[in-house]
Design a protein around this nucleic acid. Structure first.
Length: 574
DNA sequence: GCCGTTTTCGGCCCGACTGTTTTCAGTCG
């Protein structure tokens, strides 16, 4: 089982403990352990084998034993015992926004509500309002929340690339109001997380009431979820929840810091503040001895006050950035401008829309020094994969077009299928003619972990392969990553001097931030590519860079930050 | 259940908003 599988069971245990009303700190302990395992840059199974589970923060003696049990048996006895005591539908109920463990417990004990459907029925029949602490408004709120939950399938997270334009649209409208001085996105959007639950905005205004009113009446607001003086929350365009907080100028920095999160980062920061004698909240530092409040207009002052180097938002996940900040050893992260070329580009020779000439021109305009034209191989027939004969014609075409362009080097390449048995789609004789060979899995995705791992590793052992593309195959909303031992794959890449791709396509982002972080720690080369199929796809590089930054990646970790001269010598291209 | 440069026991981040409440519990981030 992989890290997220182990974390999922521990999270469910936390929910069960909360539901049962046990010591809330015990539930929190399970949740914390789950979170840290999920965000671990190492394979949990490997840590178990090396007897290093106790190194994980939040994993003490008891949870360590449970993790061992999960890895050995797929579950643990205490969980099975606890889960057997409650109806399985409880997890669905707890998933509904606004319903927490206390409410779920009340509904179960008093009304025998065991599922989301049962909850809906009880709300319609007005049985909920009669319970203590409930009332008509609560009942109505639950009803709406259930209906929204059922109509959207699940509360769901929105891919960052979908949320970005919506955020810009709202910011633009808010900025048009004369009484709003400044609007900035905080939360997971600012941390550039791959998916976001909601859009967090903070705004400066001298007339908060007017600002809030303007927000609540934006044209595409479909529902007001919460309404307050400093904080309101709406459903925007029936798609995504948007929170707006109006903040005073003198505390802007502290508030921005607070609302950027992550929650885990903030908790750690506040503990640190307490150790130094301050209570930290979104308004500033309160000196516990004197009760004097220090507010920060600039975000950096918050970190300065604690003696920390400033961590960019992408780092704020409590994955070591606070410790590194204390030692002033934060990484100097890669930026979009560091990218000098794109190594994964499709032309109209296969399933791309544009000619090689147009791709070259567009890349040149972006200031790139090189791109590799990597059309599909023949197994991917649905994408117009090239036969060996066509590939050789393709290669000739690339070099003749290359001669026409000054200032950019066109590299001949392929995105070559790794067949189910591990063989490549082209013979070595053909592959050796190419400048860049990308290997990738496109079909036969349901192989078991061992077979898939062996398949990919054998491709990495081929001397002509340069890069492994989209290493886990996941696509948002379409399919999960296939089962593969990422640590073994990365080790094979390291042993054979291959690069691993961070695919910037917004539906892929593969590697993700956790796996990319693992690759970086192991010292594996990375390539950040767009997998362009249409000229404007080149812009997606931003999203690959986001992933890389969240993985603490610096320019020197990435092969395509090299200038052309260094790049061709690194890949031994003539 | 975890954790410790005041602690191996007694804490565990902090506040806004809502609804049902005459002072607060539950949920969320």
């Amino acid at each position: 089982m992989d890290n997220s599988g182990v974390a999922a069971i521990l999270s469910k245990m936390a929910l069960l403990l909360e539901f049962k009303g046990e010591n809330p700190f015990k539930a929190k302990a399970y949740e914390r352990a789950a979170r840290n395992i999920r965000g671990l840059g190492e394979d949990i199974g490997e840590m178990y084998r090396r007897d290093r589970l106790s190194e994980i923060p939040g994993v003490g003696g008891a949870i360590r034993e449970k993790v061992r049990e999960i890895l050995d048996t797929g579950t643990f006895k205490a969980y099975e015992r606890t889960a057997a005591e409650v109806p399985p539908g409880i997890f669905g109920i707890l998933d509904i926004p606004g319903i927490g463990p206390k409410t779920a417990k009340l509904l179960y004990e008093k009304l025998d509500i065991r599922s989301v459907d049962g909850l809906l029925k009880a709300a319609i029949e007005h049985r909920i309002r009669r319970l203590s602490r409930m009332g008509p408004k609560q009942e109505e709120k639950i009803l709406r929340s259930v209906q929204r939950y059922q109509s959207s399938g699940e509360p769901g997270r929105t891919p960052l690339a979908t949320a970005d334009p919506i955020t810009e649209e709202i910011k633009e409208q808010l900025r048009a109001f004369p009484f709003i001085k400044k609007v900035i996105a905080a939360g997971s959007i600012r941390r550039r997380k791959e998916t976001v639950k909601d859009i967090d905005l903070i705004a400066l205004s001298d007339v908060p009431a007017k600002a809030m009113d303007g927000f609540l009446h934006l044209q595409k607001v479909t529902e007001v979820i919460e309404e307050g003086n400093t904080l309101s929350s709406v459903l925007y365009d029936n798609k995504i929840r948007v929170d707006l907080r109006i903040v005073p100028e003198e505390s802007f920095g502290t508030l921005l810091q607070h609302f950027t999160g992550s929650k885990e980062h903030n908790i750690h920061l506040r503990k640190l503040a307490l150790e130094k004698g301050y209570k930290l909240n979104e308004y500033g530092f309160t000196d516990i001895a004197t009760n004097v409040i220090k507010r920060c207009a600039e975000e950096k002052q918050v970190y300065d006050h604690l003696g920390l180097e400033f961590p960019v938002p992408e780092l704020r996940e409590d994955r070591g950035e606070i410790e590194a900040g204390m030692q002033k050893r934060l990484p100097k992260l890669i930026e979009v401008e560091d990218i000098k070329g794109d190594l994964h580009v499709h032309s109209n020779w296969s399933d791309g829309e544009d000619s090689i000439e147009d791709l070259a021109l567009s890349a040149l305009e972006r200031g790139y020094e090189y791109i590799a034209i990597t059309d599909h191989s023949h197994s991917t027939a649905i994408a117009g994969g090239l036969s060996e004969k066509r590939l050789l014609e393709h290669t000739k075409a690339v070099s003749s077009i290359d001669e026409k362009f000054e200032g950019i080097r066109l590299l001949s390449g392929t995105e070559c299928d790794i067949r189910p048995g591990g063989k490549l789609d082209y013979s070595d004789r053909v592959l050796q003619e190419l400048d860049i060979v990308i290997a990738a899995v496109h079909a036969g995705l349901d192989q078991d972990r061992k077979t898939m791992t062996k398949r990919i590793v054998s491709a990495l052992e081929n001397e002509h392969v340069d890069i492994l593309a989209h290493p886990t195959g996941r696509k948002f909303g379409k399919r999960e990553a296939y089962d593969v031992d990422m640590e073994k794959v990365l080790q094979a890449a390291l042993d054979n001097d291959k690069a691993i791709e961070i695919n910037s396509s917004p539906s892929r982002l593969d590697l993700n931030d956790i796996n990319a972080g693992m690759a970086r720690k192991m010292g594996v080369w990375l390539a950040i590519n767009t997998d362009t199929h249409r000229l404007d796809n080149f812009n997606n590089i931003r999203y690959g860079i986001d992933v890389a930054r969240r993985a603490w990646i610096e320019p020197q970790d990435v092969v395509n930050t090299r200038h052309i001269k260094d790049f061709v010598s690194l890949f031994r291209i003539e």
